[in-house]
Design a binder for these strands. Structure first.
Length: 159
DNA sequence: GCCAACGTTGGC
DNA sequence: GCCAACGTTGGC
């Protein structure tokens, strides 16, 4: 059995928030629109069924981790890349860029969001990818220590 | 809204 | 293959 991996995925709440996700009947969504090679490679090569993923709100008044989702479908082609009407359309997708997406299902919500400010104050979290200067990567690996540390900061509500 | 950091593009 | 120009991200 493969060991469990942990991740963090960013989303802009103005575009698609964690609340939008848990409002869906299935609490499940495909994570389309990732257009960065490094992020794609994480999804394509390393995302495994059952991996846990922090959902992080970026580009908002209070950047924070809101909840946790789990991978319910491993990487498969992102059809939006081939759809001219989609905002995620990519001219080169057909020939060159193999964009993929995964499906995730929301499983926990933090009673209170774990703000970026708070993450910055925790010694054990000091080396998180999220805090690195200029880190724009939308999908980031999280270590087991970081995962457990964050889970202990606030009560987790099962969804 | 500003702007620094970063990834990508394209001329050479 | 270099690197300047450009577009985007995202904290503040």
């Amino acid at each position: 059995m493969a060991s469990q991996n942990y991740w963090l995925m960013k989303t802009e709440p103005g575009v698609f928030s964690f609340e939008n996700l848990i409002d869906l009947p299935s609490k499940t969504t495909s994570w389309e629109g990732v257009r960065n090679y490094q992020a794609r490679n994480f999804m394509r090569d390393l995302f495994k069924l059952g991996d846990h993923v922090f959902i992080y709100h970026s580009n908002t008044d209070e950047p924070a981790i809101i909840g946790i989702a789990k991978v319910v479908k491993e990487a498969y082609p992102d059809g939006h890349a081939l759809d001219e009407n989609s905002k995620y359309f990519d001219e080169k997708a057909k020939t060159k860029n193999g964009w993929v997406m995964v499906d995730v299902e929301a499983i926990y919500k933090f009673e209170k969001p774990i703000t970026r400010e708070r993450i910055g104050k925790e010694k054990k979290l000091a080396s998180m990818w999220l805090l690195r200067q200029g880190s724009r990567l939308s999908i980031q690996p999280v270590t087991e220590v970081e995962y457990k540390t964050i889970c202990k900061l606030e009560k987790l509500l099962k969804l």
